[in-house]
Design a protein around this nucleic acid. Structure first.
Length: 423
DNA sequence: TCTGGGGTCCTAGGACCC
DNA sequence: TCTGGGGTCCTAGGACCC
């Protein structure tokens, strides 16, 4: 039997904020999405007083005030840095590690360690808490999906003390009967609804559906999920992350935007950011897609559109990408609408050092070396001195369209200026 | 005034090829 | 009257994840 573990940071963003504000440890705390839109992380106290996930912040303003809820804008510089510390700690325990998301990692252990799982779980929790200050839950299972289920139990029931194993249990069915089908990893809202309508409401009844039905109604992904719940691994541990196939950057505006010039600035800024990510993973892009949209939540006239332009030669040179992005936005902009958001997607990425060469580019060796040197300079300056130390004029200086971040905490661990003072 | 952002995978259907 | 069949590639849309 295989042994997978899922290590899941508890209320991750809230835990990050609390690390530097210990006095809010027992108060309700929420972290808002970009643009201070809705709630994306809640402390246990916030859950207990009934703040739902995804709650629009503006609807809850007086509620937050009445209940003395501490509010934070999201601060991804902080969360990303602490996330790295957590995964580095995990890497000190085992090389079989897949970083699944900013707050979750899968681990695999050899079958012979079955009897040691309780102490391993304890050790993981203790070490991460001690080294990083972040509380985590640990779930073990013979597949990734079961490890996920186990971590839910670990979170939900205090008597588990934060670690729970579903490996080698003979009461697995009884436990899966307690898990709502919509809580299963891989079953979303859409399928969940349909399943419940058919009377399939728990993980146990779901896993016992006939294979043919699963395949027909939920494609192979649904079948895989059921097989995993029955203990047959379909998803392997992936510890060598592949480069992304698309890279995007987008934001909602802090206020409605009508002028083309503002939209152009935002597109230039998002392209520049996407370009940084592109070079970070050592890829080139073959095309740029730009979209814009009005606010679907108001009653004003609606308009959204997108434009794609392919590039003659794959590149990671931001000025060229910005040019292309600007052409796109100009081609779809319509006057008279109140815009909420623009976004940029770099498409059809390929590796910088392993790709088909284009006959056209052989003539441009000297020029491309120069471009590369410029990008290197820009990236290293921005890494060393902080994001947007050097930026493009087309991104604008004032950026009146910038998102709201009214409640942002300092970047305690990633900015010298924000380093916490002692005493 | 005020409702996030960034990804992946799968399938169906059309175009095209021999 | 009879009008193939199998394969690949591409794209749009749906569903899911955190």
């Amino acid at each position: 039997m295989r042994i997978f573990a899922l290590v899941d940071c508890n209320n991750f963003y809230v835990s990050c904020e609390r690390l530097f504000r210990p006095e809010i440890k027992h108060r309700p705390v929420v972290v808002l999405s970009n643009n201070d839109g809705c709630v994306i992380s809640r402390s246990q106290e916030a859950k207990d007083i009934g703040v739902p996930m995804g709650a629009p912040a503006y609807k809850y303003q007086s509620f937050f005030l009445q209940n003395n809820v501490e509010i934070f804008s999201s601060n991804y510089a902080l969360y990303g840095d602490l996330s790295q510390r957590v995964t580095a700690t995990l890497a000190s325990l085992t090389p079989d590690l897949e970083v699944y998301s900013i707050d979750e990692s899968f681990l695999e252990f050899p079958p012979c360690m079955l009897r040691e799982l309780p102490s391993i779980g304890k050790e993981i929790r203790t070490r991460i808490l001690k080294w990083t200050g972040i509380p985590v839950s640990v779930g073990f299972g013979s597949t990734k999906t079961l490890a996920k289920v186990a971590s839910r139990f670990a979170k939900k029931y205090p008597q588990t003390e934060g670690t729970f194993s579903l490996c080698g249990r003979n009461d697995l069915d009884r436990l899966l009967d307690k898990v709502p089908v919509t809580d299963v990893w891989g079953i979303g809202r859409r399928h969940g609804k349909r399943l419940i309508a058919r009377g399939v409401s728990t993980a146990r009844t779901f896993k016992d559906l006939p294979n043919l039905w699963l395949k027909k109604n939920m494609s192979v992904t649904g079948l895989h999920t059921a097989l995993e719940l029955r203990g047959t691994p379909c998803f392997e541990l992936d510890n060598s992350p592949k480069p992304k196939k698309t890279i995007s950057s987008s934001r909602s505006f802090g206020r409605p935007v009508t002028a083309l010039s503002d939209l152009e600035e935002s597109v230039a800024a998002y392209v520049a950011r996407a370009g940084e990510k592109l070079r970070e993973q050592q890829s080139l892009t073959n095309g740029v897609m730009v979209y814009l949209t009005t606010n679907r939540f108001n009653n004003l006239p609606q308009y959204s559109n997108s434009a794609t332009r392919m590039l003659p030669i794959a590149t990671d040179y931001t000025p060229e990408l910005i040019n292309t992005g600007l052409q796109c936005i100009r081609s779809i902009y319509k006057e008279g609408f109140s815009y909420k958001k623009t976004g940029v997607v770099l498409l059809d990425l390929c590796g910088k050092y392993n790709r088909q060469c284009n006959l056209l580019e052989l003539d441009h060796k000297a020029e491309s070396a120069k471009k590369e040197a410029i990008m290197n300079l820009l990236d290293s300056a921005n890494t060393r001195f902080g994001r947007r130390t050097l930026s493009y004029a087309s991104e604008g200086l004032e950026q009146p369209w910038q998102m709201n971040r009214k409640y942002k905490s300092p970047s305690y661990t990633t900015s010298w200026d924000d380093l916490p003072k002692i005493g």
